[in-house]
Design a protein around this nucleic acid. Structure first.
Lengths: 366, 366
DNA sequence: TGTCACTGCGCAATCGATTGCGCTAGGACG
DNA sequence: CGTCCTAGCGCAATCGATTGCGCAGTGACA
């Protein structure tokens, strides 16, 4: 026997049965009673009746009037495993704590959606937007926090990783293992980190006296998510027969693809080729071999983004506002990188470094 | 030179610039033009201007009038795990096509949240709820579709996998490879598939003349996501020294944990022990070795859930309504299962001492 | 010229809550 | 007795879109 879904009572009805005006009832319900000098006794009556009738304000009517919805929009490239979802879980944490809900949309790099979704979210009166690795085409009428976005734009605060440090950690690690011929897989053109990261790598290489061989630099092409694009470009790289002893991938998923391609070619990880990933997604630790990678604090980036956005919405952040909030990477040494082995086609000056890889794998709770 | 913030244009404004009334514009936009005899020419003008100005109706205002929100709620256990996110992406696909948005909340198995979130969603006037692997405590005043939920309840439609077929596929596969001593890892108590799946396994084993050795059946305990719980119980299993040649894990993540534990013990996959997963999450294919698994069409389960819910909302589904919609599994053979080797049946015994060797435990830091 | 049938579109109420003002009655005060 | 203050509330506009009616103009026809 299904319970009859009760038609919610409206403010007007409630006011009528109390023989009060809607304004008064509304004020009491919203805790603005004292500011309006409503008698204690009246407040009690109203609150009691409201509870008794299970009165809950209609969210849309309220939202329409106040232009507040306690809702924000999150736009991501893909909802799949890895990057976005870890960030999402960080966002959720903070948002729900403050009674905010969020919409998620994924644009899959389609320009029409990149344009349309923000509009649709605005039509739903979101109070702010978090863009994860997604460019925002125009200025928005609400606060925007961008994760791994690098546009300097008014009203937008970027959450970004210290790419210089990341590049330094990565290349020092490879250098200390004796690697000199290092291949690089750059991110797709559309990925907002691609350019900055590459610049950081070039700089770090120069600082560390490492040469970058242009023939060993490839770029992800296919827009599809997953390891396939990484596998694809690594195959091409191997076909050039240009020797390399290590490869620094744009992210872990790409690294996984690269590992597949390298294995296809009959080479071993890390004996013949060391592979270094980026991000430290969950499966990086459980992959075989476990991926050495540059840990990006994705979850806390989501948390920071959320708290920052909430502050912006509350207008809690004094001007001038920061353009960016920097978070820091960590090197997580696992098993996909190793000392330069003797099987490499070219083993230049095999350094018997005493620096045995003794680093503990840090247990980095995401 | 900042472009003017894209403050959404309102119907009134649009009507003003067209020198038409709001009613007329509204009717044209909503495709009720012909029913109201609006001149073709006028329609063109309006539509053009609307597109040009990126007009999108304010959802709150429309919802208030029509008493609709075009919003549904999705409740999942965790957000950063292969299962839910794949389902989510399927849900998103269908929902956005129909102009619906969705809220996501994750309860992390906390009873208070399991109770509270649905309420909060209802307060926000969601028009329906999709529960992913999450029990719904009470009758809801809106349609509910439950993925991998198995409560028979009025107003709830379940999307469920054919577990009998899944169990059959799995056990036939293992049997055909020669396995007879098969270990099983059951899901956590709170997982809604656990019970049904196990019943199906028992039945299939019986049909296939396979014995289930109770000593080889373990159950996931720890509620945390990720492979750790699987690794944990597999270690315990190995410590019992009861020989087994194959292990059927509750899901892929668990299988990955199991593989780690098995490797710790010095055993090889699939040479010494075959491992069979479940779900076919993305990383199943890229794991090393690639996981043989029972593919669950997670994405399309999400899609089906969404379209079904939309139909329910539109009241498109005639009574009596189905209690469940069944989807079907597939066996995906990769590299983690293999023929029974000749040493296999005694293998787990041989290396008993190796299990103590904890030097590799670190590889599972996370 | 009056009537009628269309064509093409507008008026204004409505959804439910919020909110800037303002109003009234009663008592204090001089 | 007139003025002022204060406590306690109510009026009515507003948010943006939808929708039941209704109305003006035009040409045809008798």
């Amino acid at each position: 026997m299904a319970k009859a879904p009760v038609k919610p009572i409206t403010l007007k009805e409630l006011a009528a049965m109390l023989e009060l005006s809607q304004s008064t009832v509304s004020r009491i319900i919203n805790g603005e009673a004292t500011a309006h000098r409503i008698a204690e006794e009246t407040q009690r009556r109203v609150l009691h009746a409201a509870a008794l009738n299970g009165y809950v304000a209609n969210t849309m009517a309220r939202g329409l009037r106040q232009k507040r919805t306690y809702t924000i929009g999150v736009i991501v490239p893909e909802i799949s495993e890895g990057y976005s979802t870890t960030v999402l879980s960080g966002i959720e944490d903070e948002l729900l704590k403050d009674g905010f809900f969020y919409f998620v949309v994924s644009h899959r790099h389609r320009p029409d959606l990149l344009e349309g979704y923000p509009r649709m979210m605005l039509a739903r009166s979101v109070e702010g937007i978090i863009a994860v690795d997604s460019p925002m085409s125009e200025d928005m009428p609400v606060p925007v926090v961008s994760i791994s976005g690098h546009d300097r734009r008014d009203g937008v605060i970027n959450i970004e990783l210290d790419h210089d440090q990341a590049a330094h950690l990565a290349l020092s690690h490879l250098k200390s293992l004796g690697h000199r011929q290092i291949a690089f897989i750059k991110g797709q053109e559309f990925s907002s980190d691609t350019k900055l990261r590459w610049q950081a790598i070039v700089q770090a290489a120069s600082d560390l006296d490492l040469q970058i061989d242009d023939h060993l630099v490839v770029q992800l092409q296919s827009p599809e998510p997953g390891p396939a694009p990484g596998q694809e470009v690594t195959r091409l790289l191997l076909q050039t027969k240009r020797p390399f002893t290590a490869i620094f991938a744009f992210n872990d998923v790409t690294a996984i693809g690269a590992i597949s391609a390298i294995r296809e070619a009959g080479l071993r990880i890390p004996k013949d080729v060391s592979v270094l990933g980026f991000d430290d997604i969950l499966s990086a630790a459980t992959h075989h071999p476990p991926l050495t990678t540059i840990h990006q604090p994705l979850r806390s980036m989501g948390q920071v983004a959320a708290t920052t956005l909430l502050s912006l919405i509350r207008d809690d952040i004094p001007h001038p506002r920061p353009e960016a909030i920097t978070v820091y990477p960590k090197l997580v040494v696992r098993k996909s990188t190793g000392h330069l082995g003797q099987y490499s086609d070219i083993a230049p000056m095999q350094r018997e470094s005493a620096a045995i890889e003794s680093s503990q794998v840090e247990s980095l709770g995401q």
